[in-house]
Design a protein around this nucleic acid. Structure first.
Lengths: 215, 215
DNA sequence: GTCTATATTAGGATAGAC
DNA sequence: GTCTATCCTAATATAGAC
């Protein structure tokens, strides 16, 4: 039974470092983060960060990878499933808003990282979802395309391209968090007010999107 | 007629520096940007950056301020006006998508900066719009609230909170650009493909939003 | 595995000539 | 206003003891 010195009750060191790095990278961005700050947050010294992760860059990648992994698989699962469009909309909204309310800063971090390191998008879609981008695309978009097309032909929904549908849904769920500082100022909300706003949004959004689709 | 040495045909130095700084800050973020790179891009030496802007921080603020100023006033103008809700939606969509198509990286930059420097949001709303946040809020939200309320009572639209309406509209327009690298990979688009996607979106979005509002 | 101490470079900022 | 040269701290990374 191999086990390191079992310091305090903090779980093992590598995890502690990852958690600390997550906090610092999210707050300051990869470029703005300081290894010293991460070490302090993890209550270890700087050398140990390099022992486990070799360089700041690799540590940043590890953090990004883990964060992205928490965020995407669930939604993809839902959207690629055989559920009805109505259920997909409702479930996606609930799933995403509840998830993001617990980590409201994640979208800002992910989008910021992707903006400054577009090469990470490969890692994001590939490694995180477990399938190559083309497969992911086929699974999700093809399914939506089929469902939306059928509904349109049946006359129950007005026609909409699967891509626009997908982007609309993601926009409406994610943007409020990505733009949170701006929206809080614009709408005059504090943390609690923002949470209430999202709470109302949980019921509002499904109605809004389904209303837009209904013919 | 005061005029500096009139180097090349580049406009004056301060402008050149601002433009160069814009390019570098947008690409790498404030923390990741290097003063040396900005100097090179502007074809001046590093000392001159400090002569004009005193410090990297002030230069970053100047760039952010200018960028934000290009982005917001127009939409605010439209949304606070006396135009009908329908016209506001159509005009906002067209205005925003056309504007962003010319500078698709701007939302990523602005959101990234706001995420890492939330204090800039004050500057953003205040200085950029020319009015204090509360006034801005009253002007835009009060107007929308009145219009949406009237339409709901008249039975022509289903009820919707002004805040949700505003956030929905902004989300649908801005998010695709903020998440551009991700969406391009997810949808399998190159630059041209993304532009076509947005082109279709110009007509799609107005119909989508107005469809959602119609009772 | 974890630490202290230190090497080394990078990068923002300034002095001072022109 | 613009340049060259340089200062100086901050920050990543490594060496080597324990």
């Amino acid at each position: 039974m191999k086990r390191p010195k079992a310091r305090a009750r903090d779980g093992d060191t590598e995890q502690r470092i990852l958690d600390a790095a997550h906090a610092v990278f999210v707050a300051r961005g990869t470029a703005g983060a300081r290894m010293q700050d991460i070490a302090a947050e993890a209550r270890v010294n700087q050398a140990l960060l390099h022992y486990y992760f070799r360089s700041k860059d690799r540590l940043a990648e590890a953090v990004f990878h883990r964060a992205a992994g928490q965020l995407f698989p669930q939604v993809i699962e839902v959207l690629a499933s055989d559920l009805s469009i109505e259920t997909k909309v409702e479930r996606t909204v609930t799933l995403e808003l509840d998830r993001l309310l617990r980590t409201p800063y994640l979208p800002g971090y992910i989008l910021s990282e992707l903006h400054h390191h577009p090469q990470r998008v490969v890692q994001l879609l590939g490694t995180v979802t477990g399938m190559p981008p083309e497969v992911l695309r086929r699974r999700v978009l093809a399914k939506l395309h089929a469902q939306l097309g059928a509904a349109a032909r049946a006359g129950t929904m007005r026609p909409i391209a699967a891509e626009q549908f997908l982007v609309n849904l993601l926009s409406l769920c994610i943007f409020p968090f990505a733009a949170r500082p701006m929206l809080m100022a614009l709408l005059g909300l504090n943390e609690a007010g923002f949470a209430r706003f999202i709470g109302k949004r949980r019921t509002h959004l499904a109605a809004f999107v389904l209303g837009a689709l209904r013919s």
